[in-house]
């Protein structure tokens, strides 16, 4: 199903990966490319294997077959931390933050660990990092709440914090698992705007799972659609929107 996609260099190249859980085939022979510097979308009905695919890419579980390349390097045997330190970061669908620490502390420990040596474990809090944490919290609109315990934030605010933590890590690629799920509809436009700015201003490649069609059509330049663990369609947003197979899959005809 793989084909020459959009123009430009690919930063993630997934080639024919398969993942099964017992008898359930969650991903079957999936291939896709994420263009460097762009925003790529991944859609599909519930249970179609989107999150499994994300988990496979970031090394959360071993895959049964196929290859995953990041910046040309084969990473399918790497473990989660190693992949994260290469600059390939993901956020979780069930938002995960450090609940008993305040927002600033959450940010301070999210510095890019690939740059840290053994003795950096004992580094004291420097002004520069603190200021960067403040800037990022300001960027996502949490500056006023920065001294609150992360666990006391609302779900939507935790999502924003998780996004800010990911930015703090200076990733090359950021994989977002449903960034707008659970966020107040009036805040969604602001979030889309921030995702775009992260892409344009910080040069972070985005790879986004999203259920909200309006959001993904607005955001992504290229979209992949999964159904029943297989790649169903790919193309530009308008092509996907008008693809009869995608419409059928979402309406349950598949």
């Amino acid at each position: 199903m793989s084909s020459a996609t959009t123009a430009g260099e690919s930063i993630i190249e997934v080639n024919g990966i398969t993942k099964t859980f017992g008898g359930v085939v969650a991903n079957k022979n999936i291939s896709l490319n994420v263009r460097k510097g762009g925003i790529t979308g991944l859609i599909g009905p519930n249970g179609s294997g989107k999150t499994t695919l994300f988990n496979s890419i970031v090394g959360y579980h071993p895959i049964d077959g196929g290859s995953i390349k990041f910046s040309g390097e084969e990473i399918s045997k790497f473990r989660v931390q190693e992949i994260a330190r290469l600059g390939l970061m993901r956020t979780f669908q069930q938002t995960r933050i450090y609940g008993k620490m305040n927002c600033v502390e959450n940010m301070l420990i999210s510095v890019p660990h690939r740059k840290l040596g053994f003795w950096d474990m004992f580094a004291s809090r420097d002004k520069e990092t603190l200021e960067r944490a403040d800037r990022m919290l300001e960027f996502v609109g949490l500056y006023e709440k920065r001294w609150l315990l992360a666990g006391d934030l609302s779900f939507g605010q935790q999502k924003l914090l998780e996004f800010a933590m990911a930015l703090m890590n200076e990733p090359t690629v950021l994989m977002l698992d449903e960034p707008t799920a659970g966020i107040n509809p009036t805040l969604i436009n602001g979030l889309i705007d921030r995702l775009k700015r992260a892409n344009e201003e910080f040069g972070i490649t985005l790879f986004v799972i999203e259920h909200n069609m309006r959001v993904i059509m607005n955001l992504a330049e290229h979209i992949y659609c999964l159904a029943h663990g297989e790649m169903l369609a790919e193309g530009k947003p308008e092509e996907i929107q008008n693809d009869q197979r995608v419409i059928d899959a979402y309406l349950g005809a598949h």
């Binding site: 989660v80 931390q81 994260a84 330190r85 970061m89 995960r96 450090y98 420990i109 660990h113 933590m165």
Partner: peptide, 9 residues
């Protein structure tokens, strides 16, 4: 798990 995902050693 989050800490691992953020690249913490």
């Amino acid at each position: 798990e989050k800490a691992e995902g953020m690249g913490i050693h």
